[in-house]
Write a protein that binds this DNA or RNA. Sequence first.
DNA 1: ATCCGTTATTGATCAGGGTTAAGATTTCAG
DNA 2: CTGAAATCTTAACCCTGATCAATAACGGAT
Lengths: 202, 202
Amino acid sequence: MPPKDKLEKLKAFYTQLFPITEESWEVTRRVLTVRSYRKGDFLVREGDVCNYVSFINNGLIRVYYLVDGKEKIVRFSNEINYVSDYESFLTRRPALTFVQAMEDTEVVDISYPDLQMLYQKVPEANVLGRMIAEQLFIFMCNSNRAGIKESISERYTNLIAQQPWLLQRVPQYMIASYMGITPEALSRVRSRIQKKDAVLVN
Amino acid sequence: MPPKDKLEKLKAFYTQLFPITEESWEVTRRVLTVRSYRKGDFLVREGDVCNYVSFINNGLIRVYYLVDGKEKIVRFSNEINYVSDYESFLTRRPALTFVQAMEDTEVVDISYPDLQMLYQKVPEANVLGRMIAEQLFIFMCNSNRAGIKESISERYTNLIAQQPWLLQRVPQYMIASYMGITPEALSRVRSRIQKKDAVLVN
DNA sequence: ATCCGTTATTGATCAGGGTTAAGATTTCAG
DNA sequence: CTGAAATCTTAACCCTGATCAATAACGGAT
């Protein structure tokens, strides 16, 4: 069982979503594992069946597809968030993504069998599992909509407005990949934005 | 309370996901409503807060964004599936989509407050709610991946392989919209595919 | 059968992002 | 501080799908 101080963030995350009784929490604690990754380590590789859902205590992780030798990033997850190839985790089929630490990262994770056990033994687990799936769904709706309704320069400005830490912690060519364009295209977009800003200032 | 025969498909859908006790089902039945839409009717309009999740007994429904006066279809749902602006439903914020019947359609729906009541009173409801959110998530992963990994002609051939009924029930310009391209572009893709097929036959 | 509105096809041109290549800038280990 | 690797920028050209426009095919109503 992991030490209490490593679980504080996770417990706060939970209780903010749904009140959990002390007994339920004690049952849950027993199946949690603290794990550390170094920058560059893989949590999941394409072809693995993803066996864990990981709550990030600190650090930064990216999820990407490899298409014709090129990385197509689909998600960045940082501290106080979950990360997983949740699709592979749920379906028990080989992952089609890579999940990689971009910084030294500490996570608290739970295995698939342990989570199924919790779903049976701890009633609140189902509520939490439902809410987490719902939040994932809402997040995906948002990023889908960004792809459909926004121009590339709008997407970029919105992205850095919503997740300003990306600019500090993620190289631009990965932000480009996340936006579905090449680094060159993003560079052009940025210079256009800068020129427009300059005009507005004058 | 709706007549039993209108709920058979829904009950079969549920029990296949998770066994539900007769008592729980009786509680659930009481809050279900059968509703009919004519071709062209809207279940949700942009700006409405979506108040229902609807299970489709029969018919066909599309969900789309309106961008610069143009419809961008994001989902087709047919019988034995759910439809809703689930994002608006969950967040209780105005919908950003339109949800419209493409054929005369009969649904069984549940309102937001009734579903919250079920989540509190009927333990299985949380399991079902979790599983439905998980399935939605998996579905979105799949369509995201199609957009990322597949060429347009691959997407088209996969689409009609996976959902052949689309071809019969949906005009091509809407399939194009669903694929994120113009009707003209889809028409050209189709003619290219046909030529290739012809070559293979000879 | 005919008409009209809808849907599908085809062609010409255009625009935006991809590709390639070169150079500039930043980062960081030694 | 220095040099190498990684990252970012800029420019030229290319290619795919968008746009615009005209025509053809289809489908339902009379």
